[in-house]
Every structure is written in structure tokens, then in C-alpha cells.
Amino acid sequence: MMNTRQLNFVWVVLMLATLATFAIGEIGERIGIAGPLAMAALLAISIIKGRLVMLDFMGLRGVKFFWRGLMIGWLLLVSALIAIAYWIALK
């Protein structure tokens, strides 16, 4: 199970990741992170964040793979669908 230091570390990472997501929205186009690159970066950040919430906050680290697999599988599936829809929109 998680200890205090790990939980605090995860919170800091999640805050920095949120800042990155917000920054892509605010200044992404000016620093060259736009379009498909921004989409990929945003999805990657949310997969990292979601995985940390599942493993450390929800306590699924060390739990049967079945549950971790279902949860992380959901995250990957939703991200893939979003990416496919984005790709269709580019056409």
C-alpha cells in the first residue's frame, strides 16, 4: 500500500501534468505544439495522469492484473477512440 511520501509525490506529478495540459491550451500554438502533436501530447499526459490515479490513489498497484488491466484498458481504449476521431477530422 501507498505511503505518505508516495502519495505526495503523485500529487505533485499530477499538478505539473495539469499545468502542462493548460499550457498546451494557452501557448501551445506559439511554441509549436499544435494540431496532431498537441492532440498526442494531451492524450499522453492524460494517460500518465489516469494511470497514476488508478495505481496510487485507487490503490490498484500490486492488485490482481485483471483489475489493473480492465481500468488501464479503458483509459487506452478511450484515448485510441479520441485519436481515431481526431484523425478522421483531419481528413
Partner: peptide, 26 residues
């Protein structure tokens, strides 16, 4: 307490996908 906490984390998890998708991605 663990069951209730897991539900709360799910609410957080959903927003982690919702915010970039609806507010940022373009």
C-alpha cells in the same frame, strides 16, 4: 472507506480525460 474513496477517484479520473478533450484539444 476504501469503497467510497474508489468511487471518488473515479470521478477525478473521468475529469482527467474530460478537461483536455473538451477544453483544450483542437
Amino acid at each position: 472507506i476504501e469503497s467510497g474513496a474508489a468511487y471518488w477517484h473515479m470521478v477525478d479520473l473521468v475529469w482527467i480525460v474530460l478537461f483536455p478533450l473538451v477544453y483544450v484539444m483542437r
